[in-house]
């Protein structure tokens, strides 16, 4: 064991012949939030998809370098195991439209046989919805389709769905970008308490410097496929050592 929940070592990704990530390395200590920030188009989302091997699905993608989850290389695991241990929440809320609220959360545990009885499954669903701060709003209508929820509620449902498979790592791809401010705050709160109380390790991709500082323990500043600067959030925010980071914080990038 290395003490790190996630280690990314010299990650290089090429998509359709274009180099997107060029030697990205960083480490996430267990039960912390690492914010990966940077302007749009610097490869943040691609990096998340490389970590959980979603890029395997894209025949145009070439991924090099190593990614370790609790010390074990993702290349030694089956892709679906990697994805269960490091689940992802996407920029747009994407619950399965044809499944009820309950089933959306239950689908993961069912796939992985995490519950031995209906009661256990109920408990997991409730736990995940509570953790995503959605339980109180939906507990009386778990059979409703997600279309009856607001956009922000749907995003929290997506979060609950990702939590229900009991991941070690949560990969968040700008989860509040398309959500109203109230819901954004709720999601940030949910993330903080997940880390504090459940020991989950979070990689939080965002293009908003203020949010990055607010939610994270560590910051990784990605620019044009490179890590320009990284370190504890306060240090990086107060004393950026790279002029690019400074510009980004001033909103000039």
């Amino acid at each position: 064991m290395t003490g790190y929940a996630l280690e990314v070592r010299d990650l290089r990704v090429t998509l359709s012949g274009k180099r997107i990530l060029d030697g990205v390395s960083f480490r996430c200590p267990e039960a912390t939030v690492t914010a990966v920030m940077g302007p749009s188009g610097t490869g943040k989302s691609t990096m998340l998809r490389a970590i959980n091997r979603l890029l395997d699905l894209n025949p145009e993608a070439i991924v090099e370098g190593d990614i370790l989850i609790h010390g074990r290389s993702v290349w030694e695991m089956e892709p679906y195991e990697v994805r269960r241990r490091a689940t992802m929440v996407f920029q747009d809320p994407n619950p399965f439209p044809h499944m009820s609220i309950y089933d959306n959360v239950a689908v993961g545990p069912r796939l992985h046989g995490l519950a031995r009885s209906k009661r256990e499954l109920d408990e997991i669903v409730r736990w995940a919805l509570e953790r995503a701060m959605l339980w109180d709003e939906v507990k009386d209508r778990l059979g409703d389709p997600p279309s009856k929820l607001s956009g922000g509620q749907r995003q929290r449902l997506s979060l609950a769905r990702a939590l229900a498979v009991k991941p070690e790592i949560l990969l968040l791809d700008e989860p509040t970008a398309n959500v109203d401010p109230v819901n954004a705050v709720k999601i940030e709160e949910a993330i903080r308490s997940l880390v504090r109380e459940e020991g989950i390790t979070v990689v939080f991709v965002t293009h908003m410097p203020s949010q990055a500082v607010r939610v994270s323990d560590y910051l990784v500043f990605l620019y044009d496929g490179h890590v320009v600067e990284q370190g504890p959030s306060r240090e990086v925010a107060l004393n950026p050592s790279n002029p690019l980071t400074e510009k980004f914080f001033r909103g000039e990038l």
Partner: peptide, 11 residues
Amino acid sequence: SIREAAYSLGA
């Protein structure tokens, strides 16, 4: 996005 969601649950 729906397809990715399904895969990223470890399906």
